[in-house]
Computed example of a mutant assay.
Amino acid sequence: MQSDSEKLSSASATASDRAPIDEGDQGQSETIALPSHVAGSGTLDRLVETARDYARAAASENTLKAYAKDWAQFARWCRLRGTDPLPPSPELIGLYLADLAAGSGPSPALSVSTIDRRLSGLSWNYAQRGFTLDRKNRHIASVLAGIRRKHARPPVQKEAILAEDILAMLATLPYDLRGLRDRAILLLGYAGGLRRSEIVSLDVHKDDTPDSGGWIEIMDGKDGGGALLTLNAKTGWREVEVGRGSKDQTCPVHALTQWLHYAKIDFGPVFVGTSRDGKQALEARLNDKHVARLIKRCVLNAGIRSDLPEKDRLALFSGHSLRAGLASSAEVDERYVQKQLGHASAEMTRRYQRRRDRFRVNLTKAAGL
């Protein structure tokens, strides 16, 4: 008759044999394979590789990197304490979460949102190794609830870029090829309420490149037409309609067509790098960090929020400032803004609205008081 400790040791050994611990391993190669009783063949082997490709596509590259880092940090934490991360132990993970919230030694205490994301990373990693981590287990749920109650803070919101800010930022850009591109990025991102990853993932046509996150279609119409963006976004596929502006200088569709024309882009990524002299478009797709850097640079050059030190101004603005700007500036029914941003709820849209008449709908008076 085995003791509980012997059972645990046996389970750990079995788990280790089945999925050896590698801090950089994401577990997918071991998870997706031919069953042991099935004879291999060229066709089946190719299907295994195809299945692995689809599994990798289930999450973005950045998400997979974050999950791999989460597992490496947890595995190191376990090793330093003489324990094993496999099989999953709710008690051990509860202690790990408490340590993250309290901070130990040189490691600072983490925010509630970061701890929650770390837990999601562990859940994913355990699933890849054939285990299930029950987040509702009392050892995990009660510790996490206590962390939220004691340490939760309202989310830090980035400053919204409003219409007058965009105009000032556009005025700082040169009129070379690079300036045309950056002008199109700012106007399209603002009018479309796009995430920075959505901006740079656009292709000219559907299926131009394997890493495409959507494509564009320039359309004419009785109301002036515009650009229809089909996006494979964070929340799934959605269409974003970007209408033409009142004048060419501030029209996102005009800026987009000008960039594509002078950059001679008719296939592949819409937004690419330029040569050092800014006169020739290259083939490589821009990284989404370019959007954040562009916004911060233009904010400084345009003198926006010049009442603050430069460091504070840089911290206030990011890629999300474009989405918040559209939500705050568009004088239309809230449901249209919600659709444009791709939000599942009006409450999420309201988080992006930095300036709105909060009491325009007065339920107190409507209730007779």
Score class of each variant (00 low, 15 high):
residue 122 L to K: 04
residue 133 L to H: 10
residue 158 K to V: 04
residue 92 L to M: 13
residue 119 L to R: 12
residue 94 G to M: 05
residue 105 G to E: 04
residue 152 A to Y: 03
residue 131 F to M: 04
residue 117 R to P: 08
residue 90 P to S: 08
residue 108 P to H: 02
residue 87 P to R: 03
residue 139 H to W: 08
residue 98 A to G: 14
residue 116 D to G: 12
residue 96 Y to S: 09
residue 101 A to S: 14
residue 142 S to A: 12
residue 102 A to Y: 00
residue 154 P to C: 08
residue 92 L to Q: 13
residue 92 L to P: 00
residue 117 R to V: 06
residue 149 R to C: 07
residue 106 P to D: 13
residue 137 N to T: 00
residue 155 P to I: 07
residue 155 P to G: 09
residue 122 L to W: 03
residue 87 P to H: 01
residue 150 K to H: 11
residue 159 E to N: 12
residue 132 T to W: 04
residue 136 K to F: 11
residue 116 D to H: 13
residue 95 L to Q: 13
residue 115 I to W: 04
residue 158 K to I: 05
residue 92 L to Y: 00
residue 128 Q to W: 06
residue 132 T to S: 13
residue 83 T to S: 07
residue 111 S to N: 08
residue 136 K to Q: 15
residue 96 Y to V: 10
residue 126 Y to Q: 01
residue 102 A to T: 12
residue 90 P to R: 07
residue 99 D to V: 10
residue 85 P to M: 09
residue 94 G to K: 08
residue 109 A to Q: 09
residue 130 G to W: 06
residue 129 R to Y: 05
residue 145 A to R: 15
residue 131 F to S: 08
residue 139 H to F: 13
residue 101 A to T: 09
residue 121 G to L: 00
residue 148 R to H: 15
residue 157 Q to C: 06
residue 117 R to L: 07
residue 97 L to F: 02
residue 99 D to A: 15
residue 157 Q to L: 15
residue 100 L to A: 07
residue 153 R to S: 11
residue 89 S to H: 05
residue 145 A to F: 11
residue 147 I to A: 03
residue 130 G to T: 08
residue 128 Q to D: 05
residue 115 I to A: 01
residue 119 L to C: 06
residue 105 G to I: 00
residue 152 A to S: 15
residue 124 W to E: 06
residue 104 S to A: 12
residue 116 D to I: 09
residue 114 T to A: 14
residue 144 L to D: 01
residue 99 D to C: 06
residue 97 L to G: 00
residue 100 L to E: 11
residue 159 E to C: 11
residue 103 G to E: 04
residue 121 G to A: 00
residue 147 I to D: 02
residue 115 I to P: 04
residue 89 S to D: 15
residue 82 G to C: 05
residue 155 P to V: 12
residue 134 D to V: 09
residue 122 L to Y: 02
residue 104 S to D: 12
residue 114 T to Q: 05
residue 147 I to E: 03
residue 101 A to H: 05
residue 121 G to H: 02
residue 117 R to W: 07
residue 143 V to Q: 08
residue 91 E to L: 14
residue 135 R to S: 12
residue 104 S to P: 01
residue 138 R to T: 13
residue 141 A to S: 14
residue 104 S to V: 11
residue 111 S to T: 15
residue 103 G to L: 02
residue 141 A to W: 00
residue 144 L to Q: 10
residue 87 P to W: 05
